[in-house]
Amino acid sequence: MKQLKEFTIPFVGLKVGKHHFDYKIEQAFFDHFEYEDFNSSDIKVDLLLEKKATLLELNFQVSGTVNVNCDVTNEPFDLPIANQFDLVIKFGEEYNDDHIDILIIPHGEYEINVQQYIYELVVLALPSKRIHPGVEDGTLDSEILDKLEELSPKLKDKKEDKEETDPRWNTLKKLLTDK
């Protein structure tokens, strides 16, 4: 996949210490990854890169909203998201990303691209089931909700269950109470 230039950080020219990078993520970013679950997005990424003599520490803070469709009613709504991630970049003989929060890059590298980490942070911040807030508190008025309510199985009262009991069992029930 082609790397986006604005997410490439050339760390060789940076001084030892902390450096801040801010990114505004919109729908075009997810279109680049061919991710079509969002209708739109408005996400802010704060990246703190701390350069040390032998390694780099990156702290990602993601917050914002994504417009998604409800899994129950298919109504679009803005879902707030927030996530954070710490990444340590070390230098070694060859590229190695076997560990979740440690990345080893070859000694000759001079830049790092963070677009994949940002993409994964946003996607993993989403809940597995997206439910419109109006469905949870009962304020959403939707044809789909009305139809679901109409077609849902009705629970019977306990009184009705007692009346529908087969009369042949009544004699056996007396045996339980005649101890």
Rank of each mutant, 00 (worst) to 15 (best):
V66S: 04
D178W: 09
D98R: 09
E36H: 10
Q116Y: 12
F77P: 02
F85Y: 13
V114Q: 00
K173L: 09
E160Q: 12
K51I: 09
K179D: 15
H32D: 12
N39T: 03
D161C: 00
K179G: 13
K15Q: 11
K154T: 11
G64M: 11
T177C: 02
S152M: 15
P80H: 10
R130A: 08
G108R: 04
H107L: 10
N39P: 01
E26V: 07
K173C: 02
I43F: 03
T139M: 06
V135E: 03
V123G: 10
V12L: 00
I102T: 03
D137M: 07
Q61H: 05
A28K: 14
I102W: 02
E109V: 08
V45E: 09
P167I: 15
D98I: 05
Q116G: 00
H99Y: 10
G134T: 06
E93Y: 08
I25V: 15
E94R: 11
K147P: 01
T54Q: 07
L148W: 04
K15A: 14
L87G: 01
D157C: 03
D22A: 03
K162Y: 12
G108H: 11
E160W: 05
K52E: 14
H20K: 02
T165A: 11
T165Q: 15
N59I: 12
F60L: 08
L103M: 06
G17I: 11
I100M: 11
P10Y: 07
G64E: 13
W169F: 14
I104E: 09
V135G: 06
E164L: 12
N39E: 14
L56P: 03
K90V: 05
I43E: 02
G134V: 07
L175C: 02
D31K: 13
N67V: 03
P127S: 13
I81N: 00
V72I: 15
S40Q: 03
F85N: 09
K15N: 14
P167F: 15
A28W: 02
N170V: 12
I112S: 02
N170Q: 09
G138N: 08
H99K: 14
D178V: 12
Q27Y: 01
F38L: 02
P153Y: 09
F33K: 08
I9V: 06
Y23V: 01
P76L: 15
K24R: 10
F33V: 08
I144M: 04
V16H: 11
K179T: 13
A53W: 05
I118V: 12
K18Q: 12
E111R: 06
A82V: 05
I131F: 05
I25Y: 07
F38K: 02
E136M: 13
V88P: 00
K159I: 11
L148K: 06
Y119V: 01
N74P: 04
P127K: 07
D31V: 10
V62S: 01
Y117F: 14
V16K: 14
K162D: 06
D37C: 06
F85A: 04
G92V: 11
D78C: 00
D101R: 11
N83V: 00
A125Y: 10
Q3L: 10
F91I: 03
H132W: 10
E149M: 05
K158M: 04
D46N: 14
V16S: 10
H107Q: 15
D157F: 07
D178R: 11
K52Q: 13
P10R: 11
N39G: 10
I105L: 12
K51W: 04
L48A: 13
E34M: 06
A28S: 14
L124M: 15
D22I: 01
D97L: 05
K159L: 10
N170Y: 08
D97P: 00
G13C: 03
